[in-house]
Amino acid sequence: MLRKSGFCLVLFFALSMANFSAMAQSFPIELPASWKKGEAIQLFNGENLEYWYTFIKDRGRDEDPKNVFQVADGLLTISGEEWGCITTNNPYDNYILKTSFRWEGETYGDRKEKARDSGLLIHSKGEDGGYSGIWMHGIEVQIIEGGTGDFLAVGDGTETFGLSAPVAKELQGSSHLYEPGGDLVRINKGRINWYGRSPKWTDTIGFRGKKEVEKKVGKWNDLEVQTWEGNIAVFLNGKLVNFATKVQPEFGRIQVQSEGATIQFKEITLFPLIK
């Protein structure tokens, strides 16, 4: 009888903890079925940058003498030679953003031998160049060799820009690692690494980890960002690699970064979400 009672107590405790965990993470980590996709907006139409304007550090808006941002043969090529971005003319909220990218071409400057780097900044607000003279403040979905899918709070260090995510107990260096079912942490600066980021990651060109989801250089990758009511889910080549909730702000402009490496896009499509 004593052994049976002990077993029941352990079982009760385990079930209680499972229920507590479920209550603590009642948010959906994938888009609920109640949200429906609206008509597609071809943010990149293969012909021009109709929906965007350019911004380059130390040059400003719509000044691109080195053709950092070029459209040809149905592709958007961002050379990376100068630091900057393209920014949507309009802000957006509650959407699915589908992109297809590949690394193709040179690396430049102090990132010549470092990991190829770019990124999507969503929910961007404030002044052009408000962050380091380059970007608006926002929430970054990182595109970098070995770290595509990481979240970065590119904010001003206040609650105005931040996110929460379930993470592993152990840090990766100074960063948290996304882990479904983990404890929620909140950041207003720094990053939440995607679930498979290598603990041995180094900022070197061509880096690849054991759990890599991104394809080899020159191959096309599908990166999808779903954002609704303060949640962001990131899918890389069909796999959920990161998730955040209680994101602030919940809407804003979209930026695509130029950060020292040549990257190409053949699709940037936004589907508004309707509930």
Rank of each mutant, 00 (worst) to 15 (best):
K66R: 11
T88F: 10
A261Y: 00
T202E: 07
R102W: 05
P199V: 14
L11R: 03
E63Y: 09
G6A: 06
P272I: 10
E212D: 14
Q264C: 14
L163I: 02
F20E: 06
E113S: 09
T77Y: 00
K189Y: 04
I86C: 03
A233T: 14
F243I: 10
S174D: 05
F243V: 10
T160P: 01
N193M: 02
P32Q: 12
L97E: 05
R3S: 06
Q142D: 09
G162Q: 01
N48W: 02
K37G: 12
P199F: 12
S5F: 04
A72C: 15
Y92C: 09
A22F: 08
Q257M: 13
S79G: 11
A24W: 15
T204N: 09
G74V: 11
I56Y: 04
K219D: 14
D117Y: 14
G196A: 05
Y51F: 08
V225Q: 01
K98V: 15
D93L: 03
E47L: 09
F251T: 13
F44S: 02
S34F: 11
P32I: 15
N19I: 11
G38V: 05
K216P: 01
F161R: 00
W228K: 03
F55W: 10
A153T: 03
Q142T: 08
G149A: 04
G60F: 11
T160C: 05
G230L: 06
I78L: 04
D58N: 15
S132R: 15
L184N: 07
P166F: 01
L171P: 01
E47K: 12
S118W: 12
G190N: 05
Q172D: 04
E39R: 11
A261S: 10
A18W: 12
K114A: 15
V217Y: 13
L75Y: 10
I122A: 09
L184C: 07
N188D: 12
V10I: 15
I56R: 08
E113C: 03
K98S: 14
R186P: 01
Q172V: 02
L121Y: 12
A24T: 15
L97Y: 07
V167T: 00
Q264I: 13
R59G: 10
E224C: 07
G138V: 11
L152R: 00
F251M: 13
I139W: 02
F12L: 00
H176E: 00
Q42I: 04
S258N: 15
E145Y: 00
S258Y: 12
A153V: 05
K4Q: 07
T99L: 08
P272M: 10
T99Q: 07
S258I: 15
N48F: 02
G138E: 08
F101D: 10
L75R: 06
E224L: 10
I268Y: 09
V234M: 03
E140S: 02
M17I: 11
G252C: 08
